[in-house]
């Protein structure tokens, strides 16, 4: 094995090592509060994957994480950090809910229109930092954080007009805009809330894989991400490519809003994202910005989210949040560490 190959292997294993390290740290905390870590983890993952209903819950929670993770991964491939998934998903969900509830469209056109609205709202919210970056060189990290807050204020303001009396939710969508639950076709999933949004997420993942690795635009995107000056020298416009990448990333995150709005509750509710747009960063990080990796990482975090609820009786659910954070911190520390170790060996 050459030294280079060894480095690659070590670095490739860093997400797995990070997860193991975080689970070990979590085990120490679980033991410290007087519970059996092995029993807790067994319970957690058995509940998350072992029953049809549990699997359906895990998949339901993984769905917006796939959208969020793909959004971050796509932007990252173009050298951009999209922290705006939360705001993009929020506005995407709102747009879908409004079209689903108010658009005077025939039933057949309603669902496509609601999906398009979600992608368009998220895409517009992603385009702003993308264009500010392209035109003025303004840093997208700060701008996307700012836009998350602006999206919240916007929803707060619109909410006065839109929300049902004494609630923080919009009117229910028409039947034609509903994304069906998978339990309708797969009885094993029973009444779990996982719905057709999952299929859309998988389709988008496949489409993004094709876009990134099989098209000219994908090539340009990756070229800008890997070496912007080099790409520009080769005739690729950095600004145009990055603005486009942020718009697409926003659209993907925006679509993530439909899982709750069109597939689960059938209305928009304040705080429905539950941090999924934000957790997309962890998902992309762990999935190493590849569409398949994102799906696997989203399943892991989805299982943690649902399993954490199940074990709440014995260990506080907050511990799961700590675990998620530790996975992030270990994952980003492991890579530079392993690279250094590999360099020593070489």
């Amino acid at each position: 094995m050459t030294a280079e190959r060894r480095t690659q292997l070590l670095v490739a294993s860093s997400p797995v090592l990070a997860v193991l390290a975080a689970l070990a740290a979590g085990a120490a905390v679980i033991a410290a509060i007087g519970e059996d870590p092995l029993a807790i983890y067994t319970l957690l993952f058995r509940q998350a994957f072992g029953t049809g209903y549990g699997l359906g819950q895990t998949l339901f929670r993984a769905t917006p994480l796939i959208f969020g993770g793909l959004s971050v991964a796509l932007a990252f491939r173009a050298g951009l950090f999209n922290i705006g998934g939360e705001g993009q998903m929020l506005l995407g969900g709102l747009a879908a809910a409004l079209v689903g509830a108010y658009a005077p469209l025939p039933a057949l056109a309603l669902l496509p229109a609601a999906l398009l609205a979600a992608a368009a709202a998220g895409g517009a919210w992603g385009a702003i930092p993308g264009m500010l970056k392209a035109r003025f060189g303004a840093h997208e990290v700060i701008n996307t954080i700012m836009l998350n807050f602006i999206a919240l204020s916007l929803v707060g303001w619109l909410g006065h007009r839109l929300f049902e009396t004494a609630t923080v939710r919009t009117r229910e969508i028409a039947a034609g805009a509903v994304l069906p639950r998978l339990g309708a076709w797969l009885p094993a999933l029973r009444s779990a809330p996982v719905n057709a949004s999952l299929l859309i997420a998988l389709l988008i993942a496949a489409a993004l894989a094709a876009l990134l690795f099989r098209t000219r635009l994908g090539y340009e995107l990756r070229a800008v991400g890997l070496n912007a000056p080099g790409a520009e020298y080769g005739g690729i416009s950095i600004g145009r490519t990055q603005a486009l990448a942020m718009t697409l990333a926003g659209a993907v995150a925006g679509l993530g809003g439909v899982n709750f709005v069109l597939g689960y509750k059938h209305y928009f509710e304040l705080g429905f994202t539950g941090g999924a747009g934000f957790m997309g960063i962890a998902v992309a990080l762990l999935g190493r910005n590849s569409p398949l990796g994102v799906i696997i990482a989203a399943l892991f975090f989805g299982a943690l989210a649902y399993g954490g609820l199940v074990v709440n009786q014995r260990v506080p659910r907050e511990l799961i949040e700590v675990l998620e954070a530790l996975v992030i911190l270990f994952a980003i520390s492991a890579r530079p560490l392993l690279e250094r170790v590999a360099r020593r060996w070489a």
């Binding site: 960063i281 799961i320 949040e321 954070a325 911190l329 980003i332």
Partner: peptide, 27 residues
């Protein structure tokens, strides 16, 4: 020390702080 990405570290620490403080409140 580990030269990890600073933005991701900050976000991870914010998540950690949210979880740990809630954990502390409960405990």
């Amino acid at each position: 020390r580990f030269r990890a990405d600073q933005i991701t570290s900050g976000l991870g620490i914010n998540l950690l702080a949210a979880g740990l403080t809630r954990f502390g409140l409960v405990r």
